[in-house]
Nucleic acid binder design. Structure first.
Lengths: 330, 330
DNA sequence: ATCAGTTGTGGAAACGTTTCCACCAATTTT
DNA sequence: AAAATTGGTGGAAACGTTTCCACAACTGAT
């Protein structure tokens, strides 16, 4: 039925092993190579990846497990990873956990069974230590680090970026600054901690809350936060929350930036399309992806090299949502 | 080094074939099943998917090839497909062509070599007929059909949805309606044709242009269209173009809807956050994904069943960007 | 009590490659 | 001129499973 390497060998009048070498990198005469290529074209032969992988005991695919495929950060990241993988002649197996630890565990297991060459992972906070510990394949963490720092990782300088946001809000005259942070990621927690620390340094009260990263839970947490704390500024730890906050303001008729300033993470396209534009931290997403893939390739080729952590800086993009207060607005 | 089924067999005191049956569905005694499970836990055994697939000649993974992973339509689609696949005990191998026919051809080839059980595909218009013709695995097209209609497909009623948009603009008083459509997809072309046909039916001049689906090319085409045709309404065939059009209006100070009405496809979250909200066609994206996966499973189980095409309807979501013109605005 | 059927088990072949080994011929070195 | 190296090739083993086959030990029907 399906045409295998033996059929090609027969068609070319050589041995199967010779076909394998001609298609791979082994030394073959120009004459044989020509004949084999002709036979491949004639038979419509396609190598069976499973057989190849089984015998050669190595795979050309790497896994990429992201927490939320709908988040533009992760889609852009996966594109960048894929581009770099393509450049290195590798394929990417993309999986989406939806911030669900059970699903994350399942995909981790799957990757192990696939015997992927390596894995790039944006872990949930609930990722059990052991699940990764008995994982023999090279792993690079991206966007989210794990306590212990025993793995290669490429992450944002969350403390620095959060401080940029807080300082900016204080400079523009805000005094009651509240923040909502993602509960399921190390990133969200790091940003919250940095937020609290920085506000205390400024002698202000840190009004922080966390929520699971969905539009509904975010909105509920925000409603609670606004009612309880009456803030004059809001910091949001991801693009989803920024959207939820803006929607809430629209529904309630809360004026931005006069009544409430808005600032957050992730420079999604629409943040500059709304009125006023939203002040955000822009992350070098493509660099995240590229760097993670290169790091993984390097770890694959030399498994025992020392662990590295690459920290990238975010950039403050000030827009109308945090414009300085004029006398008239106060 | 790596623990195989033989090691488990030895640990459990049974034959490898018995382990295989215990882990699979073959008949085994409760006693043996218990022993095997204990041995698996003790040895940390993980089945080798490549070996399993090679021997059993069947794969539990399906491929999903989308044209642009950054487009929310496709990310939401892939989530829906994945959910449904998960429910059926299958995995999804997600690939992104970036609307590039060369890349599409490469991934098609890859899927064939992977021997996937089936493939869901959003093809570019440039997809060569032959590339798919000598493709033996079951294929379901999604979002974009191919001429000939010889494949299962689940698509939008593009003509109907476009007519909804055009009629709505005419009802709200627009006379010079221009449209920009994606050049790389069958979908874009179908929408353009329906656009032109409907306008002609109304006795109006169809001002249509096409462009490759990127923010830059879209913007350039829009600038040209505005300068040349001086339209009072704009129809955009995808979310990317809607964003580009809005950005252009912002930059030029063009007032919406007074000077120019905006309406398009894809109900992305931000279209209700901007002022005014954008009138759009909402597509049942989750249904697309679910339906495509079910269709694929059905085709896999009965390869010779007749070809089906499922056509879904879009829903008009009228917002401020196409508000009726008041006297004062004219 | 014999026969047919079922259930549980082990041994061995098979899936489609790559790679090891052996070999030969042609070259280069001693 | 013999020895050593090199380039090219074929044969066969190996990768880790599943599945086919054979067989034994039961079950229930004749």
């Amino acid at each position: 039925m399906t045409v295998g390497i033996k059929d090609v060998a027969r068609a070319a009048g050589v041995a199967p092993s010779t076909v394998s070498r001609a298609l791979g990198k082994g030394p073959v005469s120009a004459d044989v190579r020509r004949k084999v290529e002709a036979a491949v074209a004639a038979t419509g032969y396609r190598p069976n990846l499973a057989a190849r992988q089984l015998r050669s005991q190595q795979s050309m695919t790497v896994g990429l497990i992201v927490a939320d495929i709908r988040n533009p950060f992760f889609t852009q990241l996966s594109r960048a990873v894929e581009d770099e993988a393509y450049r290195a002649g590798m394929r990417v197996f993309l999986c989406n956990t939806d911030e669900d630890p059970a699903r994350e565990a399942m995909y981790l297991e799957l990757m192990a069974e696939e015997r992927v060459a390596g894995l790039i992972l944006a872990p949930t906070r609930a990722l059990s230590r052991s699940a990764l510990a008995d994982f023999r394949v090279p792993v690079v963490l991206v966007d989210r680090n794990l306590p212990g720092g025993r793995r290669d990782a490429v992450i944002l300088d969350n403390a620095g970026a959060t401080a940029l946001l807080v300082d900016h809000l204080i400079e523009t005259g805000r005094k009651r600054i509240a923040g909502l942070f993602g509960a399921t990621s190390a990133t969200g927690i790091e940003r919250r901690d940095a937020f609290q620390k920085r506000l205390i340094q400024h002698g202000l009260e840190p009004l922080a809350a966390t929520a699971p990263p969905s539009a509904e839970t975010g909105r509920a947490a925000l409603e609670d936060l606004l009612a309880r704390e009456k803030p004059d500024a809001l910091v949001l730890s991801n693009g989803l929350f920024v959207g939820a906050a803006l929607q809430l303001c629209r529904d309630r008729g809360i004026r931005i930036p006069a009544e409430l300033a808005l600032a957050g993470f992730d420079d999604e396209a629409w943040t500059s399309l709304v009125e006023p534009g939203i002040t955000v931290i822009r992350q070098p997403v493509d660099v995240f992806g590229r760097e993670a893939m290169l790091m993984l390739l390097s770890r694959i080729s030399r498994p025992d090299q020392p662990v590295r952590t690459v920290t990238l800086s975010g950039e403050l993009v000030p827009r109308g949502s945090t414009a300085a207060l004029r006398r008239a607005d106060v």
